[in-house]
């Protein structure tokens, strides 16, 4: 399991110690999935949903959302009404 790759996809920086620790966790999880993979599912349709209902839908109506100060209030940094974030490389 390439923990480094997964960390990069999530934009996380991990120390070597953390990487080793994560690798142990990941491997434990993967072992569990191996066990699941050993089951013969040749003639079983994949179950994406346990409930077979139509997804509920809404009519196309505009409803009022949040006040801007409440939105900006939960952001760590803001500027001129925008949410300010570090530049993503």
């Amino acid at each position: 399991m390439d923990v480094r790759h997964i960390a990069k996809l999530s934009n996380l920086e991990l120390t070597e110690d953390e990487l080793r620790e994560m690798e142990e966790h990941f491997n434990a999880i993967m072992e569990y999935f191996k066990k699941l993979s050993s089951v013969d599912t040749e003639r079983v349709e994949p179950t994406f949903y346990v409930i077979k209902h139509q997804t509920p839908m809404r009519e196309d109506r505009v409803e009022k959302g949040l006040e801007r100060e409440d939105v900006l209030g939960i952001a760590p940094h803001t500027e001129g009404g925008y949410i300010r974030v570090p530049r993503i490389r």
Partner: peptide, 25 residues
Amino acid sequence: EPNTNVCPVCLGLPGSLPVLNKKAL
């Protein structure tokens, strides 16, 4: 104006749930 047209669903706030717009489908 930026961020004046948002709600817990489109901001992905915890506990919010998306509901499909029938017309879009």
